[in-house]
Amino acid sequence: MKDRKTTHFGYQEVPVEEKAGRVADVFHSVAARYDVMNDLMSGGVHRLWKRFTIELSGARRGQTILDIAGGTGDLTARFSRIVGASGQVVLADINESMLRVGRDRLLDRGIAGNVVPVQADAQYLPFPDNTFDCITIAFGLRNVTDKDLALRSMLRVLKPGGRLLVLEFSKPQSKLLEKVYDQYSFRLLPFMGKLIANDADSYRYLAESIRMHPDQETLKGMMADAGFVDCEFHNMTGGIVALHRGIKP
């Protein structure tokens, strides 16, 4: 009998075709309280990480931006103001619940007209080649089943000279910080998930998926392998989060 291909779902090994469904379940579960939990878990620092991402995007008026795994629309809202009426921001997420929360939240804040919500899988982006000036994926790549496939798909839809920015949890640069961070992730985080969202398992998955995600140098290499040039990364908050940037040649 032929072996079934597996991939990781947190610390578990699951068949490749099951991962997307399991990840979807996690995000269906946390969608409603995703923002509250983000603020609580990061102490609000995720806003600063996203702020730096916006700065490095070099987004300007009239540009077309793709915000993959845009979730509740934090980055989309900021890009929408920058690109203005002559530009466009596509808010993409594979998860229907997250996309609905994001779209509703943007509409509630009066952000419309230049924002298009699209339910899309990062591995098979449903856009023509050379469409976007910039692509961002914030805290989403680690949940993608085949990261290499997703990076190549992003490269395809980027315009030549366009930028990909990957904001993702990464490997802390200090041993001490790593220990503190481990305690926080595996003890406090599921507890907070249980308390706030009544869902400890989803938040345990988030912590585990962060540990399974490639570290800074590995992800940089993956981006280069996919075809991006001038790949670089910036560690933030001691490497707990890293922002990778690559350019489509």
């Binding site: 620092v45 806003r47 600063l48 990480w49 702020r51 730096f52 700065e55 910036h234 560690n235 933030m236 908050t237 001691g238 922002l243």
Partner: peptide, 12 residues
């Protein structure tokens, strides 16, 4: 320096 600090200053 860590970009988080500078982003915090700019945001404030």
């Amino acid at each position: 320096s860590d970009p988080t600090f500078r982003a915090g200053f700019d945001a404030a």
